[in-house]
Nucleic acid binder design. Structure first.
Length: 708
DNA sequence: GCAAGGTC
């Protein structure tokens, strides 16, 4: 019997269907001499430092550089304790049994670096010796699957791909864990100060933008606006020049020949320029663009959108969500008319679907060469019945985008009127002549400048018109906006380089930060570490985040280019370059960064440890004299009374009343504080106790193990 | 108590 192993259940079931295998077993499908089983992503991962004897977070362990990495079953936290994930163990047992019975293994994990790693880690962890061949397909249509199985490759052809994957995995472990422990220990072990190839450059982008925004000095400039009257319709024109100086602007204002100054026809039309502009529809969604759109329109976080999309996928309403491609191949294109027909009953854009049924479809999103592991997001053939509101939002964004992507271009007419009234003025207007794809969501073009007139009256060159009103406008130059989740995701795709053009950005994805599947969790990690917080839609760094940024901003680990550099080397390894050389370099770099962080990390000690800031007042609970403490960087403060502490933890910088504090405590928005340093220099850990329905924190002395 | 990667 042959065993086919896929990366995830949906793919295994699809393959089984094509073969006509129908016997559903626990963890696999059987039939026609094949067993189709699956993983759930990475079931096996690199073992934690403890497996190599590195116990605790101790200076003398650093740098941790295992000679040979060990593999371990993926673990989960149950009540704060790490345990092998029971679901994973169960599936691994299924795979083990099938591998033992197999005459041959067919590797059908996703066609990419991580797909290869997922299989090999399982194969080596199980110490399996059976021969294997590789299925390599980029589309899951029946024809592509059949063709792929007729053309199975020897497993060894992908050895170098595995080496590059293994290097990626081990390098992230070595650099990330060592840097994290080094900085945390050096800073006094008050909290986890994590660093990593992806999260640290991401943090750096947020901090740099925040500082740039905060330190931005707005320049004031002036512009003159006039309102010109054409047969009773007023339109606005702006001075061609901006003025830094008020008096220069004032002179221009005075020179305007408006009616009040005694000019009945003080504006002369010098030129009228009318240009058509065609606007291509947007590409289909990949996960990142979906997350950006959902954030912009509905304020969903990247993580929420991913979870909702995963649910829709499990309900078989949309295709695989964690895709990085915004294209489909010709095989899928053939199914598009049926998918469009499926949307004709939609309350918002059903009419557009009807229209598209008879139209020639736009093929901008069709390009098989740009389909990687997975194609762009599409709705499936199944019609949703009653979806919860938030799922419906995501479903509509995906199906609406499909209608947009295959729609005609939007045709606009741009009009530019140049005129003279003492000096030169210009009026701009845009009229949509044929909305095309814009009819689907029928939303205003948000990019449009507010200076524009929606429509301009018809005027001709040489015409003389009246200036009804004139005004001096005071304007300010604006800083680059703070990052929100949408703009951050976009920036991560291109490592911070700002590229508006969708297709160009697509081309740069290989060197972006993180992957579609991981970006949401990277943002969540930064929030969990209290490096950043959400403030309405914006992402703001905390003092802790800024302090870490300040310490590492000039180091390689904070540069987005590090990923690009690794990717280049990993690609060379895939083509046969030396693995050892890269591994040696990574080890050397780890020694350097560990040493550097241990040297400078102490600077954070004072900044991040709790400090006594105020004298005595009265504890709201025990009525004893208390002192106020604050851990500024974490946005954490509280009250101390003898050995009892009540603390609240909030990222908010505003002052809270005692009543508000008690409400927070009752709602459970409190957290344990670690490593509080008293005036006498003793270090305490806090533990939570509940009494009379209220939370108290008892601080207990501890001995730290960080500085031996 | 750590990374980044994949997925339910």
């Amino acid at each position: 019997m042959k065993v086919v192993i896929a990366e995830k259940p949906s793919v295994a079931r699809e393959l089984a269907k094509v073969f006509g295998a129908t016997m559903k077993k626990e963890g696999y499908v059987e039939g026609k001499g094949y067993s189709f089983t699956w993983a759930f992503g990475h079931l096996i991962q690199l073992a934690a430092p403890e497996a190599y004897g590195f116990k605790g977070w101790r200076l003398e362990n650093l740098p941790m550089l295992p000679e040979r990495f060990k593999l371990a079953v993926k673990q989960n936290k149950v009540n704060g304790v790490l345990k092998d994930d029971p679901g994973v163990v169960k599936q691994l047992n299924v795979i083990r049994k099938l591998f033992e019975e197999a005459s041959e293994i067919i590797v059908a994990t996703d066609a990419g670096r991580e797909g290869e790693l997922i299989f090999r880690y399982i194969y080596y962890h199980l110490k399996c010796k059976k021969p294997f061949r590789r299925l390599w397909i980029s589309s899951q249509t029946d024809e592509a699957i059949k063709q792929g199985f007729r053309n199975l490759k020897p497993g060894s052809e992908y050895d170098t791909l595995f080496y590059s994957a293994q290097c990626r995995s081990e390098s992230d472990w070595i650099v990330g864990l060592n840097a994290t422990q080094a900085l945390s220990i050096a800073a006094g072990n008050h909290s986890v100060l994590s660093l990593g190839r992806v999260q640290t450059p991401t943090l750096a982008m947020i901090c740099a933008r925040y500082l740039e925004n905060k330190n931005f000095k707005a320049q004031i400039y002036y512009q003159i606006a006039i309102w010109v009257n054409k047969d009773g319709q007023l339109f606005k024109a702006l001075s061609v020049k901006n003025f830094d100086k008020l008096d220069a602007a004032q002179k221009i204002l005075e020179a305007v020949k408006d009616a009040a100054s005694g000019f009945p026809q003080g504006a002369e039309i010098l030129n009228v320029d009318v240009k058509p502009r065609k606007e291509q529809p947007p590409l289909l969604h990949d996960l990142s663009s979906l997350q950006q759109e959902a954030n912009k329109r509905k304020g969903f976080t990247a993580d929420q959108t991913l979870t909702l999309a995963q649910t829709l996928y499990e309900s078989k309403l949309i295709t695989y969500p964690r895709t990085g491609s915004r294209y489909i191949g010709d095989d899928i294109f053939a199914e598009i008319p049926a998918l469009i027909a499926n949307q004709t009953g939609h309350p918002a854009f059903g009419k557009q679907a009807v229209e598209l049924l008879t139209a020639k479809l736009n093929k901008r999103s069709v390009n098989a060469k740009k389909v990687t592991d997975h194609h762009a997001l599409l709705p499936t053939n199944n019609k949703p019945q009653f979806l919860p509101e938030d799922q419906q939002v995501i479903y509509d964004l995906i199906s609406g985008r499909m209608l947009e992507a295959f729609h005609h271009e939007c045709v606009k007419e741009l009009t530019k009127i140049s005129l003279e009234s003492g000096s030169m003025f210009v009026a701009n207007g845009t009229v949509i002549q044929s909305p095309g794809w814009r009819a689907v969501f029928n939303q205003a073009d948000t990019e449009k400048e507010d200076e524009e007139n929606p429509t301009l009256p018809k005027v001709v060159k040489g015409e003389l018109l009246q200036v009804g009103k004139k005004e001096l406008l005071e304007k300010q130059t604006k800083p680059k906006p703070l990052y929100n989740e949408a703009s951050l995701l976009k920036a991560m795709e291109t490592s911070g380089k700002e590229i508006e053009d969708d297709e160009l950005r697509q081309a740069m994805k290989d060197t972006g930060l993180g992957t579609p599947a991981t970006r949401a969790s990277i943002i969540e990690t930064l929030i969990k570490r209290e490096y950043i917080r959400r403030d309405k839609k914006n992402l703001l760094p905390s003092e802790k985040g800024l302090a870490v940024y300040d310490l590492v901003k000039d180091k390689q680990i904070a540069q987005a280019e590090l990923t690009g550099l690794w990717e280049k080397r990993l690609e060379e390894i895939r083509s046969g370059a030396s693995v050892q050389e890269f591994k040696n370099e990574i080890r050397e770099y780890t020694r350097t960064i560990t040493r550097e962080l241990l040297e400078v990390g102490g600077e954070l000690n004072g900044k991040l440890s709790p400090q006594e800031v105020e004298g005595a007042t009265v504890c709201p609970l025990c009525k004893k004299g208390i002192i106020r403490i604050t851990e500024k960087a974490a946005g954490c403060s509280g009250y101390a009374s003898g050995c009892k502490f009540i603390i609240w933890r909030t990222m908010s910088e505003k002052k809270l009343t005692e009543e508000q504090i008690m409400t927070l405590i009752e709602k459970g928005k409190t957290d344990v504080i670690r490593g509080f340093k008293s005036k006498s220099g003793k270090i305490f850990d806090a533990s939570l106790i509940l009494s009379e329905g209220r939370a108290h924190f008892v601080f207990e002395p501890r001995t730290i193990q960080t500085t031996e």
